[in-house]
Write a protein that binds this DNA or RNA. Structure first.
Length: 185
DNA sequence: TGGCCGATATGCT
DNA sequence: GCATATCGGCCAA
C-alpha cells in the first residue's frame, strides 16, 4: 500500500479531516485506523484564534506538521496542520487499535481494548505522543496509508468547545464503536 | 448512564 | 493572580 504524501495536507482542514477517516496511522510498530477527526480553521474555536501566540504561526504558515498541546493539565492532543493557503489543523480524536495492541494494553492495565485510543488524550497516550513533537513533519514521525476499505463518514458538532458550536466539523466513521462520546447521530 | 471532579498548561488582565 | 480548557476516570443509581 502506497503511503500518503505530504501534498495530502495542502487542502483545507475540513477536507483533510474528512479524508483522514479510515486511513491507517502507524508509528513505532503501533497502528490503527483513524475513526474520528475534527477540523479547525480560522473559526472562533480554533487555536489559530484562541491560542494565537503558540499555535497561530504554526497553523497559519504550515501544513503537514505536528501540533501537540496539553489540555486539562494532563492530556495531550495530537493535531496535524493543514491548508497550504490558510490556517488549519486537524485533531485526531480516536483510532481503532490495530498492530501493537498488546503494547498499548501493557501501558494501561485493565483498560478495555475499545478504550485504548478512544478520545484524543487516550489516543495520544496510545501512540506515545510528546509535546516536543510539535513542529516536526507529520510524515517523518508517522506512516499514513489510505483506507483499506472505503469509510462511511458522518459529521457532528465538535466536542468540548464553547464557540462556533454550530459548525459540524467533526468527522466520524459511521457506526464505529471506537468513536468517542458523545456518539454522533 | 449520568454526573462529579481532579489536576495543571496556557493565555489574559 | 485568574479563568478556562479540542478530558478522562470514578462512582452512584
Amino acid at each position: 500500500m502506497a503511503a500518503i504524501a505530504p501534498a495530502f495536507f495542502a487542502s483545507p482542514a475540513r477536507r483533510v479531516a474528512r479524508a483522514l477517516v479510515g486511513c491507517v496511522i502507524e508509528r513505532d510498530g503501533i497502528s490503527g485506523r483513524i475513526v474520528e477527526t475534527e477540523a479547525y480553521e480560522d473559526d472562533a474555536a480554533s487555536h489559530y484564534v484562541t491560542r494565537a501566540p503558540s499555535a497561530g504561526a504554526l497553523m497559519g504558515a504550515t501544513h503537514g506538521r505536528v501540533y501537540v498541546y496539553a489540555i486539562y493539565g494532563m492530556h495531550l492532543c495530537l493535531n496535524v496542520t493543514a491548508d497550504a493557503a490558510g490556517p488549519g489543523a486537524v485533531l485526531l480524536r480516536a483510532i481503532e487499535p490495530g498492530a501493537g495492541i498488546e503494547r498499548m494494553r501493557a501501558r494501561r492495565s485493565g483498560v478495555d481494548d475499545r478504550d485504548l485510543a478512544r478520545g484524543p488524550g487516550r489516543l495520544a497516550r496510545a501512540l506515545g505522543i510528546t509535546k516536543d513533537m510539535t513542529g516536526a513533519e507529520f510524515l517523518d514521525l508517522f506512516r499514513l496509508s489510505p483506507p483499506p476499505r472505503p469509510a462511511r463518514v458522518v459529521t457532528a458538532p465538535r466536542v468540548g468547545i464553547t464557540r462556533a458550536t454550530a459548525l459540524r466539523w467533526r468527522f466520524c466513521e459511521a457506526g464505529s464503536r471506537f468513536v468517542s462520546d458523545p456518539r454522533p447521530g
